[in-house]
Design a protein around this nucleic acid. Structure first.
Lengths: 333, 333
DNA sequence: GGCATCATGGAAACCGGTTTCCATACACTA
DNA sequence: TAGTGTATGGAAACCGGTTTCCATGATGCC
């Protein structure tokens, strides 16, 4: 590949001049510029972005950390949103893999990894649990950072999330308005921030409708279909059963399968409302609360670019919406 | 962040020595090495990978081009396979976004993009159609390259794919062995390489069983559920209908929905066999041919690393397997 | 015609590493 | 004691760009 020196020699100018042409700096005669551009084109020259990053400390790259693997049902859509925005602004995406540092002699945090790769900003996703101490250094650093679904802020850090609290309220309120008073919740692991918020929304609506809260009807489990299935099996064995269940989609689908496998049906015997609106949900005709995953990605990318450009960095909270399908029914009594 | 110069000064040695320590080169006294390592650790130093790439021409980064967006049902799994292998070997992944080059003054191909970013190798995926000319430069270059589902080879290029031909044969043979003689195929766009291979497998088994080929029973469409739905609607309107349908999963599922929406059922009225085994298929209890998407990613990454390390670069063809579920039945004719 | 001003382009330092090659010091041999 | 070999560490060039600052020549003005 041709380098800037080759081009300089061929054009009989200095590399400084070539650089000015590349970067459209003023102070180069039109004629000279034309000549340099022509030589560049003839030699199919494009500046080496690594060398450029080294001197400018700018790489046109956004890093992504996703060590917990963002929920499969989410990843592609969120990623696509990020990609769209980054692409439009000329950024590429560096996906940091989980690495085994064999006998690593240095403790290595997110800040070091990203600075060492010279990314211009990072998006942190797939961290479900709330243990923020490992982000302290990152938050204190000047690395532009956006968290997805973790409400952390810092000098150069902000976050993007869906309005889980109000989304959950919409869901549960919908059930209440259909006449349900015995409502169970199957949700994610207790330590998960999004799960907690949704649970708060759930409780808040129970209060609002003066429904007493029954802790036996709350199940915390991993975000896996089977876990929803098992939780529902427990419900089916209870003497006093709820009439409706609020559960994140993948768990809701597990529950639906358990219900069907045990000879009951939805919504006749149980009304089910989900949260997320993953792709599968449509196939189960699941009534649910939609999160806009694509927009989550778009917003995260836009926000990190704003922070990079020193624009405002206010957190973004995305609205959710009720998607009525076929798994909830009105009950009387 | 500390640089190699800072460390050198603090340790009262030259940067050359620090570099030797970092890279575990011989010729540094144990005592000196210890001291340097201690200083590095104290200052939380890690070498800047951009500077390093510039001088070594090695970046520990694998680039991914995916402009056509690898089928959503595939992406995450393939990506995860790639990630696992890359991570284990200390590589990160640079995802090249689709960029709009406003008034770009240079024609820009895959080779230039990857060289300019100094990736050590690239994986090309999501190119369904067979137009290979745009890969000519890449194939001729020395950039280690692996194609997924496109059988292109070059000095430093190879590919990974599933055995679509034999997979399709397994599918169709299974139908034949169940007694079906009237078999339709709903497949991807005509120009798609994988679709063509599967179609060849289909035809080959028809020959094998001496079943005459009926072109009216072959439908080419986009890989979208709705397209499968529409194709099936056409079949349902035919006077002489097939008894079985071979279709890629997403199309098969569209077909199943059409069948059900029109008052028929699977497998009573039609046997359906898919290809791919996407996540959805299990939920439809679809009998299908499984492609191991994760392994596709693993193999692609392993292969590109082999090429980088000048090991063999023989193409990898992954076996497929029949997954029997509930959408095919024996007929007696 | 002499001098200030401006447009243009180049020299050189720098970004943070790697690597080659040479200098030094010390030990060992003759 | 001089000569040779070996272990160790440093100087400097290099990777391919950017950027600052200065030199040069042309122009404008009095």
């Amino acid at each position: 590949m041709a380098t800037i020196n080759d081009i300089a020699k061929l054009a009989k100018v200095s590399k400084a001049t070539v650089s000015k042409v590349i970067n459209q700096h003023p102070g180069v005669k039109e004629e000279t510029k034309k000549k340099v551009l022509r030589i560049m084109k003839q030699n199919n020259y494009w500046p080496n972005s690594v060398a450029r990053s080294l001197s400018t400390h700018k790489s046109y790259t956004i890093g992504i950390f996703d060590p917990g693997r963002l929920n499969n049902f989410f990843f592609r859509e969120v990623f696509e949103g990020i990609e769209r925005v980054c692409g439009d602004k000329g950024y590429d995406i560096l996906y940091f893999t989980d690495k085994k540092w064999d006998g690593s002699w240095v403790d290595f945090g997110y800040t070091e990894i990203s600075k060492n790769r010279s990314v211009d900003g990072v998006i942190m996703m797939g961290f479900g649990r709330v243990e923020t101490s490992k982000f302290d250094a990152l938050l204190a650093s000047d690395m532009p950072t956006v968290f997805i679904d973790l409400d952390l802020v810092g000098k150069n850090a902000s976050y993007v999330t869906s309005d889980n609290f109000n989304g959950a309220k919409t869901a549960v309120r919908y059930l209440c308005q259909l006449g349900h008073e015995k409502i169970a919740m199957i949700t994610g692991p207790n330590g998960f921030k999004v799960a907690r918020e949704r649970f708060s929304g759930f409780q808040s609506v129970l209060d609002e409708f003066e429904i007493s809260y029954n802790p036996d009807w709350v199940f915390y489990c991993q975000y896996q279909l089977e876990a929803g299935y098992e939780a529902m099996k427990k419900i089916l064995k209870m003497r006093e059963k709820p009439t409706a269940i609020f559960a994140e989609d993948i768990l809701a689908i597990g529950a639906i399968r358990a219900i069907r496998d045990h000879g009951f049906s939805v919504p006749e015997d149980f009304s089910i409302i989900g949260f997320d609106d993953i792709e599968l949900s449509e196939h189960y005709d699941l009534t649910t609360i939609r999160q806009d995953k694509y927009m989550l990605g778009v917003s995260a990318a836009e926000l990190v670019l704003k922070i990079i450009n020193k624009k405002n960095s206010a957190p973004v909270i995305l609205k959710t919406g009720l998607v009525k399908r076929a798994t909830c029914r009105r009950i009387t009594g």
